[in-house]
Simulated assay, not measured.
Amino acid sequence: MHFFYHAGRYFSLLTKVFSKPERHKVYVKRLFSEIDALGVNTVGLVVIISIFMGGIITLQVAYNMQNPFLPSYLIGLGNRDTLILEFSSTILGLILAGKIGSNITSEIGSMRVTEQIDSLEIMGVNPASYLILPKIVAVVFIFPFLYVISVFFGLIGGLLVGPGVGAITAAEYLNGVQYLFNPHYVGFSMVKSLVFGFLVSSIPAYFGYFVEGGAFEVGAASTRAVVTTNILILIWDLILTQLLM
């Protein structure tokens, strides 16, 4: 029953969020502000994590393929497919749920407990649409770009680390990266990125919008938002994999 209660309030909130905006110019201005705050400021974290993970995946594949009968280019291929199919979409989504999701919950939750949302309602503004819609659009828009950036720098990380420690030559690694490339994998993960972007923005916004109490409750709501978002990302990863692969 608890689940259905939250699900009902969540979809009711989304109805308000996607209602017709009152002033489009204000929404456009807020959209670019949210893209900068939630997307652009996340690029550095994505680059650093992807470089290290690309290097780690390359080493792990190399050390588990020390067999003369296995071609060395499979190391680059393994890193490429791992990044494209799972890390740069699902695992990165789980990581960004902590950074972006907690940011959204704490911001909206703080506005709720300080009665700023109530003030917007008194002024005749739709607070759900005004506060949440730009965040959802911004995160859904920026997630596919973060996915591409993650794949690129993950491959760079493998290229730096693999030849750097002598696990594989640069030529063999690059040959593996190009070997049997399947564009469907990228399209599949792009769809996942869009879905995960929606979850990472809408679920934390829900928890922040309906928080009650003070600063402690805002912190607890942020934790619940991140945990719930991570669970839903894994569930939707399973569903999308079954449907699209």
Rank of each mutant, 00 (worst) to 15 (best):
I231A: 11
S50V: 13
L194G: 00
A62Y: 11
D36P: 01
T169C: 10
D36E: 09
S222K: 02
Y5H: 11
G44Y: 07
V17E: 01
G54E: 05
L13P: 07
N175T: 11
G101M: 00
R80P: 10
E121T: 15
L133N: 01
T169S: 15
Y209C: 02
Y147S: 08
L92Q: 11
N175P: 04
Y5N: 10
Y130L: 13
F152A: 15
R9G: 14
T105Q: 03
P127H: 08
Q178I: 07
V195M: 09
T82A: 15
A7W: 07
G78M: 08
I233K: 04
F52H: 07
T241N: 09
V28A: 05
I233Y: 04
F4M: 14
P183L: 13
P204A: 04
N64V: 05
K99T: 03
T58V: 11
E34C: 10
G39T: 03
N103W: 05
L232H: 04
I235D: 09
L14G: 11
V17F: 02
T229S: 11
I56T: 11
L120A: 05
S19T: 08
E217Q: 05
G208S: 05
I51E: 10
G101L: 00
L238G: 06
E115R: 14
N230G: 12
I132L: 03
M53S: 08
F188S: 07
V28F: 06
V161N: 07
V113N: 04
L199P: 06
S202I: 01
F188V: 09
D118C: 14
G98H: 00
F69R: 12
A37Q: 10
M111Q: 04
S201P: 01
Q242F: 13
A167K: 12
I235T: 13
T90M: 11
V125R: 04
V218H: 00
S150K: 08
G162M: 10
T114R: 13
A62I: 13
S201C: 01
S189K: 09
G208C: 03
L133I: 01
F4R: 13
R30N: 12
A221W: 00
V191M: 15
E217I: 01
M245L: 14
M65P: 09
Y10R: 03
E217L: 02
F145V: 09
L199W: 08
Y179R: 07
L13C: 12
E217M: 03
G78W: 06
L133Y: 01
Y173D: 07
K192R: 07
V46D: 02
I231N: 06
L174A: 06
V218E: 00
A167T: 11
L174V: 10
G166F: 03
F152L: 15
